[in-house]
Nucleic acid binder design. Structure first.
Length: 501
RNA sequence: GGCCCCAUCGUAUAGCGGCCUAGUACGCUGGCCUCUCACGCCGGUAACACGGGUUCGAAUCCCGUUGGGGUCACCA
């Protein structure tokens, strides 16, 4: 019974968790959240985080996807202690390179009798179920469990090769899920399952638990979709313990789904499922990690913006919420915006550069003058962005020559009748400011005097035309600061050009 | 269909038997600030799926119902 097959009791620095994606497509935010929780648990406990790749499906796996997964972890700063590219005592860490290990395991497993040869084809199984009046959905009928040597020889004589199945014990299987509590699967819930194809290829059902066993994984934290395969893995673990590959069954914790719109799992088709979509939009790692952590976990009752360090300090998988969480783009953006505001100014400035380049606002090799403008403008826009891809739209006018400014339709439409007069008066006032004193305070004072007091305009009416003339937009960073950055000559040039258009 | 999981404002969550006439955040919304837009600040909106228990007392424990989801491959 289960007393013979103990669960891991590891804690603290003895904890060993792993992240083991199969490289089939772009990294999904659900996958990333799984990586994050495993990583956070390892860092919290002081244990080890192992990263291996489950590339046993040659038809679907790709090298591109493999590289993207590494790119994703690196971008998010989720580092690992053993595995891909860093090595470790249980390598190699790509399953496609572990065939010899699996071959040895398979031989030993056969010797224990917990794994047996099965010659039934899917067609034969279905036919038998139908003949017995059973729903074909019940699956395999354990037909080959006790084949005699003569029967096996007869099948082989027909040229048939056996798949290998695990003999599922005829008893209830119970485990204590770290996020859901005790879960019991009654005896007979599932039939003996295939772990090795007739051609000798081991399946996920074998290699995943085998590698966890060999790598001495103590806590398996993974998606809820694998919950119903857990009793099968536990059955296999019994065999692995019998065969001497390990001594304990890991603890399991099944993390809730990340859902999309409606009530369906966020599918690979949804753009917001794609991690890189968020990176391209201008999520910063701090923001995305924070938001993803919120999907099933919380730091405290009254605060949801936190650093990765705060998360590591507080994270325990037993506090993960079992119910599925909807991915809410608006909330994610808001969290990201908060993290953008938390950045040091220089850091924020630097992080905008790739997005400005992508938006053709900055060249690949920005000039010192451009960098000076950016540094001056950065504080004006740090509270005006949710995602960094908003930077080009907001800052473009500062990097565009006066003669190339275009005026947005909605900006022109909202202008007052006397826009020309306002601008003319502004030019006159600004001309009087000495070049060296062309600061936002001086600009504001001059314009206030000329427009608000002189022409007796409401500020809203007074500054709208100037904003449009300067930026071409209805909405822009603060006006006087923008004028200061542009400088006296360029500012006046823009105003004059606007009135001459 | 069998088996399994899940169930607090629209969304994410706090809550682990009394502190709850249910807190926080996003969203939406009223206002203040204000050169636009933001930020910031003040306020509003809105939830314990249902029915039985257990208990002096239940959002919290138990059972059932309903609803949702997953899984039943020689995919992972």
């Amino acid at each position: 019974m289960t007393t013979n097959y103990p669960y891991s009791t590891a804690e603290g620095s003895d904890v060993r968790v792993r992240f083991c994606p199969s490289p089939t497509g772009t990294p999904h935010v659900g996958l990333v959240r799984t990586a994050l929780f495993n990583w956070a648990y390892a860092r919290h406990t002081g244990g080890k985080f192992i990263f291996r790749i489950e590339d046993t499906d040659a038809a679907r796996d790709s090298e591109e996807s493999y590289e993207q997964i590494i790119d994703a972890l690196s971008w998010l700063n989720l580092d690992w202690d053993e595995g891909i590219n860093v090595g470790g005592p249980h390598g190699p860490y790509r399953q496609s390179q572990r065939s010899d290990i699996y071959a040895e395991v398979i031989e030993k497993l056969k010797a224990t009798g917990r794994v047996y040869e099965s010659y039934s084809t899917p067609e034969e199984i279905e036919a038998r179920n139908l003949a017995a009046g059973k729903d074909p959905k019940v699956g395999y009928d354990n037909f080959d469990r006790d084949l005699t040597e003569e029967q096996k020889a007869a099948f082989r004589a027909e040229g048939r090769l056996p798949a290998l199945r695990v003999r599922v014990p005829d008893e209830d299987i119970t485990f204590d899920d770290l996020v859901r509590g005790e879960i019991t699967f009654p005896a007979g819930s599932f039939p003996d399952f295939v772990v090795v194809r007739p051609n000798g290829d081991p399946l996920y059902t074998l290699v995943n638990p085998v590698d966890d066993a060999i790598m001495q994984v103590t806590h398996v934290l993974r998606g809820e979709d694998l919950l119903s395969s857990t009793p099968r893995q536990i059955a296999l673990y019994h065999a692995l313990i019998d065969a001497g590959f390990t001594t304990h069954i890991p603890r399991f914790g099944h993390l809730p789904y990340v859902m999309g719109e409606g009530n369906k799992k966020l599918s690979k088709r949804d753009p917001e499922a794609n991690l890189f979509h968020h990176r391209d939009r201008g999520f910063i790692p701090e923001g995305l990690i924070n938001y993803l952590a919120l999907l099933g976990w919380s730091l405290t009752h009254d605060r949801d913006v936190f650093t990765i360090h705060e998360m590591v300090k507080a994270f325990d998988v037993v506090n993960v919420n079992p119910n599925p969480a909807r991915f809410d783009q608006k909330k994610a953006d808001a969290i990201n915006a908060d993290h953008i505001r938390l950045l040091e100014l220089e850091d924020f400035t630097a992080r905008m550069i790739p997005y400005l380049q992508a938006g053709n606002v900055l060249s690949n090799d920005p000039t010192d003058e451009q960098l000076d403008i950016l540094a001056a403008a950065a504080p004006l826009v740090q509270t005006r962005m949710n995602v960094l891809s908003e930077a080009p739209e907001l800052l473009e006018f500062l990097f565009t020559p006066a003669e190339q400014i275009t005026y947005a339709e909605d900006a022109l439409k909202g202008l007052p009748e006397n826009a020309g007069e306002v601008i003319a008066a502004s030019v006159g006032a600004l001309e009087l400011i000495p070049q060296a004193e062309f600061t936002h305070d001086a600009i504001q004072a001059a314009l206030n005097e000329a427009l608000i007091e002189g022409l007796e305009l409401k500020p809203r009416i007074a500054f709208g035309p100037l904003r449009t003339a300067i930026s071409g937009r209805r909405i822009s960073p603060p006006l006087f600061e923008s004028m200061e950055i542009l400088g006296k000559a360029d500012t006046i040039k823009r105003l004059v050009r606007f009135n001459e258009r």
